[in-house]
């Protein structure tokens, strides 16, 4: 008999996320991976500033909260202090792709042996729906009320594509959590990103396309459709870099 249960690596703390937000799914995937790899006891997670700031309450492993954008630097310190620990960051798009761009690129360039879970929902959720570095052209937000005008606000940052050009990055994949099939793929990618670290393979980042029904102003169901119709064409899913797979095929 299969019993659907809460992963051990998730605490009993009630999640604060809005109804329909896919952070909960992604938290669960990370926790399931920790359970399956048996690494909860030696994992240290770094929470960002943004919607997932309180992730430190939800994961059962040791946790630290980092200043906005600095999670990869904090993770670097922890990993260098004790390489036997499994160190991961959990960051949103504002945190990772705007204020924390330098930390992201340089931890990848150093092939820092950490795992980065990057949640891209094309908006600043915590502060109430402002334009993010990943907000799509034409997308309406509180700070792009007439739609993102690229002649004024510039273009979205495609993190997976960007990091695939960084020599130090070991594994970069973009996934989505819009349906069961993709959720399963997302879990596989997250598991690989953690396994890579255990195997000493270096910087692994999984970009997860996620929804924000509250700030997109749509129902949770419509948000999934919006993600499929708008985000997925602009941010195609797939493996952008896997240096070990490349080596294997050579």
């Amino acid at each position: 008999m299969v019993v659907f249960d809460k992963p051990h690596a998730l605490t009993d703390a009630p999640l604060h996320y809005c109804p329909g937000c896919t952070h909960g799914i992604i938290h669960r995937l990370v926790a399931e991976v920790m359970d399956e790899l048996g690494i909860e006891g030696k994992s240290i997670g770094v929470a960002p500033v943004g919607c997932s700031v309180m992730a430190y309450n939800y994961f059962g492993c040791d946790m630290i909260q980092a200043a906005h954008g600095r999670a990869p630097a904090v993770a670097t310190g922890i990993k260098r202090a004790d390489p036997s620990k499994v160190v991961f960051t959990y960051q949103g798009d504002g945190d990772l792709a705007a204020i924390g761009t330098a930390e992201t690129v340089h931890s990848a360039a150093r092939r820092e042996n950490i795992t980065v879970i990057f949640v891209n929902n094309a908006i600043y959720g915590m502060t109430g729906g402002q334009m993010a570095p990943t907000t799509l052209p034409g997308q309406v937000t509180q700070t792009s009320p007439y739609g993102r005008d690229v002649s004024v606000a510039g273009y979205p940052v495609k993190v997976a594509e960007l990091l695939s050009n960084v020599d130090g990055a070991a594994y970069i994949e973009r996934v989505a959590v819009n349906n069961v099939k993709n959720i399963n793929k997302a879990k596989k990618a997250i598991k690989k990103a953690f396994q890579n670290q255990i195997d000493g393979k270096g910087f692994s980042l999984v970009e997860v396309l996620s929804t924000c029904p509250t700030n997109w102003g749509v129902t949770p169901e419509k948000a999934l459709t919006w993600l499929e119709e708008n985000m997925m064409p602009y941010y195609p899913l797939g493996v952008y870099k896997d240096i070990y797979a490349e080596e294997e095929t050579k």
């Binding site: 240290i44 770094v46 630290i64 980092a66 200043a67 600095r70 630097a73 904090v74 993770a75 670097t76 310190g77 922890i78 990993k79 260098r80 202090a81 004790d82 330098a102 930390e103 690129v105 340089h106």
Partner: peptide, 19 residues
């Protein structure tokens, strides 16, 4: 470790201090 910025350096310090 030579960090990419003073900001990164102090946050690496923060990480180690936490351990």
């Amino acid at each position: 470790l030579q960090a990419e910025s003073e900001i990164a350096a102090i946050n690496m310090v923060y990480g180690v201090a936490a351990t």
